[in-house]
Amino acid sequence: MPAACLQGDRWKAHRKVFCSEFQQSSVQSYATVHLRAAKILASRLLRSPCQLKEHLRSNAAGVTMGVAYGIENESENTRFLAIAEKALEGMAAAAKPGQFFVDFLPFLKHLP
């Protein structure tokens, strides 16, 4: 990342907000999000204990979306999780060597 991206008033403002929200003294403010997610997880585990992996995945997404974005609606969590997973799949596919012609013909990187 260029050094210019890591400087300036905008970067400082973002960092200040991040640090104020994610320090040890701020953790207590997220207790309701964690408690709600724990109750949902326990309920799901009682209904279908064999789907532990799916329940944990959904729980992690719910906590993340609740803390980071204030989203507590389960359908919204599922929608955003699907978008994030699709993006990760695309990035993983693009990271595989040999996926693009430019990997075989390096001169192509100079063409628009």
Rank of each mutant, 00 (worst) to 15 (best):
25 S>D: 13
90 G>Y: 01
44 R>C: 03
80 F>P: 00
9 D>I: 07
48 S>I: 00
15 R>A: 11
98 G>H: 06
100 F>S: 11
12 K>A: 15
92 A>F: 07
67 V>A: 03
87 A>S: 11
50 C>T: 12
112 P>A: 10
83 I>T: 10
83 I>K: 05
47 R>D: 14
36 R>W: 01
58 S>C: 10
96 K>W: 03
104 F>C: 04
108 L>Q: 07
42 A>Q: 06
110 H>V: 08
87 A>E: 13
51 Q>L: 11
111 L>N: 02
14 H>K: 11
8 G>Q: 05
91 M>T: 06
101 F>K: 08
64 T>I: 08
77 N>Q: 08
3 A>S: 15
11 W>Q: 14
106 P>Y: 07
19 C>H: 11
2 P>E: 02
68 A>S: 07
86 K>H: 07
47 R>W: 03
62 G>H: 01
21 E>H: 10
45 L>P: 01
51 Q>C: 08
13 A>T: 09
62 G>M: 01
19 C>F: 05
38 A>K: 09
21 E>K: 13
95 A>S: 15
41 L>V: 03
7 Q>L: 13
9 D>E: 15
48 S>V: 02
38 A>V: 06
74 E>S: 04
17 V>N: 07
77 N>K: 00
49 P>D: 05
43 S>E: 11
92 A>M: 11
16 K>L: 13
15 R>Y: 10
108 L>I: 11
87 A>Q: 14
104 F>Q: 08
29 S>W: 09
12 K>I: 08
66 G>E: 01
66 G>A: 07
82 A>S: 15
49 P>E: 02
72 E>M: 06
12 K>G: 08
78 T>H: 02
9 D>T: 12
33 V>I: 15
48 S>Y: 02
37 A>V: 02
12 K>H: 10
46 L>R: 15
90 G>M: 15
66 G>M: 04
31 A>F: 12
28 Q>W: 05
85 E>V: 06
102 V>W: 05
40 I>V: 12
110 H>Y: 15
60 A>D: 06
85 E>K: 10
56 L>H: 06
91 M>K: 10
62 G>E: 03
88 L>N: 05
26 S>G: 03
97 P>A: 06
63 V>S: 00
38 A>D: 04
35 L>A: 15
95 A>W: 06
69 Y>W: 13
14 H>F: 14
25 S>F: 03
40 I>G: 00
109 K>C: 10
44 R>M: 05
47 R>M: 08
90 G>R: 13
32 T>P: 01
72 E>S: 09
71 I>F: 09
65 M>L: 14
85 E>T: 02
60 A>N: 05
65 M>H: 12
42 A>C: 04
28 Q>H: 12
